[in-house]
């Protein structure tokens, strides 16, 4: 295991929502609520619990890694060749909650290339993504 952990890519999405963290936590962790905004599931907010998200386009296999009620939730997200970890962070604000989701991972078909590369890919991709975003 050399540089695998640092040679992944990540996606961050964040948004302020005018709702308390407790309420958002329920939407993130209760099966019928998860189904309403994400996918059908057998999720449980319990460390080590294995679950599936199901959609028309396929399935996501996951396992809960960390649970801190109303604050953070981390699970693995393995789907369509993507091996990743999803981390939710809820931060209370004066008007509601700052919701942040970060997905970090890699595709196995890129893994060898990532492992073989001993260069600052992370930084490189961050810079490139900014460039790509600007050219949209």
């Amino acid at each position: 295991m050399n540089k695998e952990s640092t040679e992944t890519l990540s996606v961050v999405t964040e948004r302020e929502m005018p709702h308390p963290p407790e309420k958002i936590w329920r939407a993130l962790t209760q099966q019928p609520l998860i189904e309403e905004w994400l996918m059908k599931n057998d999720f449980e907010p319990r460390v080590d619990h294995r679950f599936k998200f199901r959609a028309d386009w396929g399935e996501v296999d996951g396992q809960v890694l960390a649970v801190e009620p109303n604050k953070t939730l981390t699970y693995t997200w393995v789907a369509m060749g993507l091996e990743s970890v999803v981390t939710w962070t809820l931060t209370p604000t004066s008007t509601g909650t700052h919701v942040r989701v970060e997905q970090t991972g890699f595709r196995p078909d890129q893994q060898r290339a990532y492992n073989g590369a001993k260069y600052g890919w992370q930084q490189f991709f961050a810079a490139l993504e900014q460039v790509v975003a600007r050219t949209d």
């Binding site: 990540s10 996606v11 929502m17 958002i24």
Partner: peptide
């Protein structure tokens, strides 16, 4: 560079849409 950044841009769009759904749900709750 698309093959390299593909999944991240895919998932960025995915989470943006899911955040919209999540906000709709929170309003309904």
């Amino acid at each position: 560079l698309a093959p390299l950044i593909d999944w991240t841009s895919q998932m960025a769009g995915f989470w943006q849409r899911r955040f919209d759904h999540l906000e709709d749900l929170l309003k309904r709750m």
